[in-house]
Design a binder for these strands. Structure first.
Lengths: 219, 219
DNA sequence: CCAATAGTGTCTATGAGACATTATAGT
DNA sequence: ACTATAATGTCTCATAGACACTATTGG
């Protein structure tokens, strides 16, 4: 009987940090690449995990303390060359969390790096990060995905800024709000406002039933 | 050391058959589910395959005789419950071929079933087919993907009909052609026409450098 | 009143859908 | 001439982007 590949999960945990989309890296505690920064990841535990989503959740909790993020399968990287231990499969996931969730959850074991200046990472983790960023930017262009980078209540200006930071481009305020209104996945939080030295803004939250709304495409 | 999961690839081979999007199923030659129709699939061969795309290509060639189709990774299904042999990972791919490629390649070992009346399949193959169909329909709505369901030369009417069969809805001829012209991924085949009892149509082919063109999205 | 940000309105250009018209083959 | 399909043109409406304007707070 021939040898089975190694099976792991790796998670690309993304958040906004210093007005940039940033990925959370952890220091590897075991060989290979011990001591280097890499994606939080680990073996699938066949007695413990019912499926790979649970593996991803467990690994993320163990390595970063994050509990219930937006979590979605990204892609599987599999082959003979990507891991020095031999033929391996990495089922990868990406997660989005508000930066507040990161501050609360971790004991500082995490390094946040802007996705646009990731250097070389162990294994094929640079490619994995690149794929996640592509996916998130693409999906953000036609869905409410970036909402998961914000706390549960936010202003429309904060939401627009989040989209802009994810996409890396400015958006028109009027058009942006027209689209939000048409899609109708936000609801104002009654009576609550946010303060500054100027007109206060209405706070909103995502409607319970519409945590991921996909906009129109063409053709 | 704990046991590693089984690692397999399964391929959802799609084509047009009797004006419907159809999936190619093969009869299982081994347990479990020996003798039943299922997706062409098999173990990853770690000494033979450099990566999972090569596994998919190999499996598809072995089981169906298809050589160089459009082939793209779909999703990975992984868990304790999906295969009676135990915890397993299936890295799934989908392939698109013109129906002519199927007739030529197979010795009749393939069963073509319209995707909209797939019943129960072994393992979680029904779900896998459903995911592939969702992906193909979605991607067809904003890309030139359906071109891979046609032979290398085709008329605009044939292309429109292909889109309609994939998407399951009628399209307006004028709008369809306007969009094709704007995207500019087709080129007329010089002097060649196709005949009937009426005005002949221009034949086209996909430009070499534009085998998958993605249209605009919004936001 | 001023500064600063929130929120809304208007104009225009683009593009999609619906539908009509012209073109060209065989019979 | 007739029919069938190819190919193109026109009209209208919806919508996105650009930008201007009004609203409301603190100082």
């Amino acid at each position: 009987m021939e040898r089975r590949p190694i099976t792991t999960v790796d998670v690309v945990l993304l958040t906004l940090h210093e007005a940039q989309l940033a990925v959370a890296l952890t220091t590897r505690t075991a060989e290979p690449f011990k001591g280097l920064l890499a994606l939080p990841g680990g073996y699938v535990h066949v007695e413990q995990d019912q499926d790979s989503l649970q593996s991803a959740r467990r690994v993320l909790l163990e390595k970063t303390g994050i509990k219930a993020p937006y979590l979605e399968q990204l892609y599987s990287f599999a082959g003979a060359a990507r891991d020095p231990r031999g033929w391996s499969v990495s089922i990868t996931y990406y997660a989005l969390v508000p930066s507040s969730a990161l501050e609360a959850a971790t004991a500082g074991a995490i390094s946040l790096t802007a996705v646009d200046d990731i250097g070389q990472l162990p294994f094929d983790h640079s490619q994995i990060v690149a794929a996640a960023v592509r996916r998130v930017r693409d999906k953000s262009s036609y869905s409410s995905l970036p909402c998961h980078l914000l706390p549960s209540r936010f202003t429309l200006a904060e939401l627009q800024s989040t989209y802009e930071q994810v996409m890396g481009e400015k958006l028109d305020k009027s058009s942006f709000r027209r689209k939000l209104a048409a899609l109708d996945f936000l609801e104002p939080v009654r009576g609550e406002l946010k303060s500054g030295a100027h007109r206060p803004a209405q706070l909103y939250r995502v409607r319970k039933t519409r945590s991921l709304v996909v906009f129109d495409k063409t053709m």
